[in-house]
Amino acid sequence: MEYIIYIQRNTELIMEYAQNHFALVLTAIIISLVLWVPVGVLITKNEKWASRVLNIANTIFCIPSLSLFAVMVTIPALGLGRRSALVALVLYAMMPLVRNVYQGVKGVDKSVIEAAKGMGMSSWRILWEIQLPLATPVIFAGFRITVVMTTGIAAIATYIGERNLGRLIAEGLTRFNVEMIIVGALFIAIIAIGLDSLLGYIEKRIVPRGLRTGRS
């Protein structure tokens, strides 16, 4: 009950935080997609580069989020605030996006590629008409992981000056305000789960029909 009262009393603040949270997540995701999907596709053409890039992505992914945010802050061009947060989030997204695009494209049945090549399809045409469509389930899985993860990590950006839902938790912790913590945690969890389910729904519609018929 007290949570509802808290939400009612602070609707405006929560809405502002939620908006900021969304804006940060959305921007990070868009930049990540524009950046990492092409990288994932490109490295399918060269094994050596693939292992290098994937290694870098893996290593970045290991870095604790608070650490990465903290390091970003020390870079003068970034400083406290949105720019640091964005860079860190985009760096985290590298691993699930690049890896899944790479694995998705590489995982396409070799015989399908062989047959397409044998019919005279150019390698870009094969990529565009066969490999990418067939990789959609795997790519989408990576996309979902990215969205959920970014939503969660974005909350931590509150410690480097972002005014988002993470702030409810942070302030709740310093003020020992349980309602604030729970409402903050709840909202972030709801956004993450909501986005995940939404993407799950979109995934079902976007996956090529021939890949689904077997299951229906």
Binding site: S111, V112, E114, A115, A116, I130, P208, R209, G210, L211
Partner: peptide, 10 residues
């Protein structure tokens, strides 16, 4: 080819 390689999404 033996594995045929029909495009599963077409």
């Amino acid at each position: 080819i033996q594995q045929i390689g029909l495009l599963p999404h077409r």
